[in-house]
Computed example of a mutant assay.
Amino acid sequence: MSGTYSIYVKYAQNVADIGFLTTTIFCSILIYLTIFKVKRNFGSYTYLLVLFPALGIFFATLEIVLYPNVFHHDASYVFYSTSRPFGMGKNAVIILLGFYGGVYAFTVSMLSVQFLYRYWAIF
Rank of each mutant, 00 (worst) to 15 (best):
V113K: 10
T22N: 11
G3I: 02
I35M: 13
L49C: 15
L66P: 00
V93D: 04
Y104C: 04
A54P: 01
T23P: 01
S76C: 07
Y47Q: 13
G87P: 01
V103L: 11
K90M: 06
S112P: 00
F106H: 06
F20T: 05
V108R: 10
L48K: 13
F58H: 05
Y119V: 10
S109G: 10
V38R: 15
S76W: 08
R40S: 15
F99E: 03
A105P: 00
L62R: 02
E63A: 00
Y77E: 13
M110E: 11
Y67D: 00
L49K: 09
M1F: 09
Y80L: 12
I18S: 07
I122Y: 11
R40P: 00
L55T: 11
G102E: 06
P85C: 09
Y45H: 07
T82H: 05
A92Q: 13
I29F: 12
H72F: 07
N41T: 12
L30H: 09
S81N: 03
Y77K: 11
F52D: 03
M88N: 04
G101N: 08
S6P: 04
G19D: 02
R40K: 15
S2Y: 04
I25D: 00
M110C: 14
L48E: 11
I31C: 04
I35W: 11
G43P: 01
L51T: 10
F20S: 00
A12Q: 03
S76L: 09
